[in-house]
């Protein structure tokens, strides 16, 4: 799970955890690189097309998340369906305020998700603590203090369109990931 520099995965965020056996193909020569490039493309395509998100709503943004998943906006069109358990989800949408009491749960949920995993901070509370940044004594001031975040979506709460925009942004990021055959 931890980032292994020898495998050449990009450091940090979300960790595109490449499975080790494929990495050997880097040594196969130029033709292999083309193949590897295509494999990357294919794998990334699969990953971005099937972003199952964890049903994890703490506050107001959770309602917009539901509405984004419902009939009008229909996240299912993007292949994004909700899963109730972190083990089967790829995307942790932090929708809502994270308090200090909740903080270690968020961290645990993130750790329970299998690689590769992605995090979207949705709304002001998850971005920076939002409305509770100034006067509240018990709100985590940004979920990026707990877990690595890939995409931040501003809004309080963001419109469902903004959420979809964020997911499409994440898809773009996923497409640029190098999983296999990156220079060791």
């Amino acid at each position: 799970m931890s980032h292994d520099p020898a495998h050449g995965t990009p450091p940090g965020k979300g960790g595109a955890g490449a499975s080790a056996p494929f990495v050997a193909s880097a040594a196969l020569g130029p033709e292999a690189h083309v193949m590897v490039g295509n494999a990357d493309l294919f794998v990334n395509w699969a990953r971005k097309s099937s972003l199952w998100y964890l049903l994890f709503a703490t506050a107001c943004c959770g309602i917009e998340l539901m509405q984004a998943g419902a009939s009008r906006y229909d996240l299912d069109r993007f292949g994004a369906v909700f899963r109730a358990t972190p083990r089967q989800s790829d995307l942790l949408l932090v929708a809502g305020t994270i308090t200090h009491k909740m903080a270690d749960r968020v961290k645990r949920l993130y750790e329970q998700m299998p690689e590769p995993k992605y995090v979207i901070a949705m709304g002001s509370c998850a971005n920076t603590g939002g409305p509770f940044y100034k006067d509240s004594y018990c709100v985590v001031k940004g979920v990026d203090l707990l877990i690595p975040v890939d995409v931040y979506i501003p809004g309080c709460p963001p419109r469902p369109e903004a959420l979809i925009d964020g997911i499409m942004k994440l898809q773009k990021i996923i497409m640029q990931r190098k999983n296999y055959g990156a220079k060791a």
């Binding site: 002001s124 939002g130 931040y152 979506i153 501003p154 369109e161 903004a162």
Partner: peptide
């Protein structure tokens, strides 16, 4: 990222220079 889009600032702005736009998409990395 911290704004709560309540519109109080727009209401009080004397020269009406501060305004809400219709923009809502600004997902950033």
């Amino acid at each position: 990222g911290r704004c709560m889009y309540c519109g109080l600032c727009v209401e009080v702005c004397p020269p009406k220079s501060l305004k809400h736009t219709s923009g809502y998409e600004m997902a950033s990395v």
